[in-house]
Amino acid sequence: MILEAQGVTVRYRRSQPAALDGVSCQVSGSELVAVVGPNGSGKTTLVRALLGLVPLESGSVTVDERPVDSWPRRSLAQVVGVVGQQEEAVFPLSVAETVMLGRYARLGPLSAPGAADRAAVQRALERCDIVGLAQRPIDTLSGGEWKRVRVARALAQEPRALVLDEPTASLDVRHEMELFELIRQLVDAGLAGLVITHHLNLAARFAHRIVLLDRGAVVATGTPLEVLRRETLSRVFEWPVAVTTWSDGSPQVVPLRAGEVTTSRGGSP
């Protein structure tokens, strides 16, 4: 198990309800886990807890079987690569320089990048299909290109787990699909993947397992077929949905219009 949370409770302020309440979640190699849930359900807090960035009220988080707070950040960055929700460059570097920042955890303070570092960066650029952008300043990139650059930077860390927080927010269909295809390829090649997403249908098609959060607690966890059920989703998202089945067997969620009634084809699997 590379990432594991056991009964994690996080509370930002004493007077407020818990942002996470007894949440458990595991991710191992060659497995893609999607965390879904309404806004404010605790998805990003779960990522922050898994990375040791918020204090836990109770429960435990381990990375590679070791408590996350016992990891020096430099060592942790060699195991877990993260693509956060948003990032804005104030001082624009080139794409190649930005991806090379992924090698920070493996470089000494004064040492210049060596052949292994350059090779890792080149591999990351190739995997994300951005070799042609290597010399471009990052403030000239489109939203989709910038996302790929950040994924490449995380890959340059040569991690064993990749955590992505809403990686396809503000991307069009093509870029969305390209990114999920890339993530799935990386996971099939051995990485552990954890994706926070609002796209239930993409989670259903690409993830091995889904964790559904609501108000800081796990409502359902299991395969997409087990989690994406009409009654559960309608209750959690407070909006009626129908769930159909795509030709590959994955459930697909269709939000209903007000007053719309599901047909037999649109029923729960």
């Binding site: 960035l53 920042l101 992924g102 920070y104 470089l107």
Partner: peptide, 19 residues
């Protein structure tokens, strides 16, 4: 080199290994 990471913001810097 740490300043390169800090300039990205606290969370990206954490993720890339900066204290």
């Amino acid at each position: 080199r740490s300043l390169d990471l800090i300039a990205l913001g606290d969370e990206p810097a954490h993720h890339l290994g900066a204290e």
